[in-house]
Amino acid sequence: MDSTPLHMRPERSFQGLILTLQRYWADHGCVILQPYDMEVGAGTFHPATTLRALGPKRWNAAYVQPSRRPKDGRYGENPNRLQHYYQFQVILKPSPPDIQELYLKSLAAIGVDAALHDIRFVEDDWESPTLGAWGLGWECWCDGMEVSQFTYFQQVAGVECAPVAGELTYGLERLAMYVQGVENVYDLNFNGREGADKVTYGDVFLQAEQEYSRHNFEHADTAMLFEQFKMAEGACRKYLEAGWDGDKKERHLMALPAYDQCIKASHVFNLLDARGVISVTERQSYILRVRELAKACGEAWIHTEAGGV
């Protein structure tokens, strides 16, 4: 830790925090992946979690996932809420017996001292209606602040997890604000430098928050989005159908491209929702349609090689 240069230390640098977490989980046997190259609402949507959580094979991975929640945009005016933020996602399958200790050590690695802070595991069962997924776990509190989500996946995409995977999700901005002692997310030191070299979170993202808030709430082209939803849904079904190798449906050859379309549909739905053009009753049916896609993709995935065939 002491050999770490100042600008890389988690308590001074947002990127330093990310790199420390990556390093920590790499040391514990994880594959360090890069973000998925599509718009998603949470790190869980990355196929490295959703799909890899299914099937019997071991899988340990960690990655940062930029996450988009169009409805959470606040035009850059709110010190805590963002429509685009980073999650750090760890998936360990099967869940190791010392997963809680591993998690606590990762907090120690980024400077959260368990002898000084009050770290708690508070019940929080996780359910994703769009992914057809649920699990039991906690939100992890540090001095009354939720810093991570901890979930033992029981079911994903309508398929029982066998074995069960443990999922850890760190809200990076919030965690960084805590260790840096900053009240406003835009004041976070991004690169750990001082003076003229310092780049803040606001320097990087404030304009984007303002622009995307305008887009999400006021201008997103709803006619196009409705069309895109239909297209993504149609394409997903088409690829799923075409992917079966032979009539016996024993092997699937295109689960990943099909799942991309499911992700697409989900994000388009979120945009439409933010624009307020989906009524309460319709909302349920859209969620159901995305879930049907996710389930079909899960079913396809377990008939692929990585899915365990």
Partner: peptide, 10 residues
């Protein structure tokens, strides 16, 4: 609500 976990959950 109960859950499975770890290696044996398979």
């Amino acid at each position: 609500k109960a859950m499975r976990w770890g290696e044996l959950s398979a």
